[in-house]
Amino acid sequence: MTSAVGTDTGSNYFVAGDSLRLIEHPEILPAGFPLQIKPLPIKNRYEGDKGAIANGAKLFVGYNCLDCHGADGSGAMGPSFQDGRWHFGGSPGDVFESIYQGRPDGMPAWGGRISNEQIWILTAYVRSLSSKDLSTENFTGKTVERTGH
């Protein structure tokens, strides 16, 4: 996370939040507006919770996520979750948003179809898969099982 940068004398002001935002016209700010604020990342209360992650694994199968993203999220029609790389951001808030709203390459929107609680549980599971450094492939290491359609 980039640290917040602020100044009360310059013409440009950065305000940190979930994303940094350039405010070009400080005169529109209300009096007393905090020009230096700490990031308030969205927290997932299930993050790292083993029980929730186990339930998330079940939801991942039950909602047919597995057949798109592969067994254990190894990648299939949809991208891998094991590589520590994220198309639309990997923070809990980002992952929640991807599941809730869907994404343009075909990821369905689950918001309103399943409970937000379940989306948070899925978020915890999906993030728990992201652990491998796959930057280098040297063709001598182990392999994973994949299935075709």
Binding site: S74, G75, Q82, R85, L134, T143
Partner: peptide, 19 residues
Amino acid sequence: LIAGDVAANLPYDVRERGT
């Protein structure tokens, strides 16, 4: 699906070799 690691243009989708 089967040769999951033949892509190189997707920085967000890096896959392990398949068996």
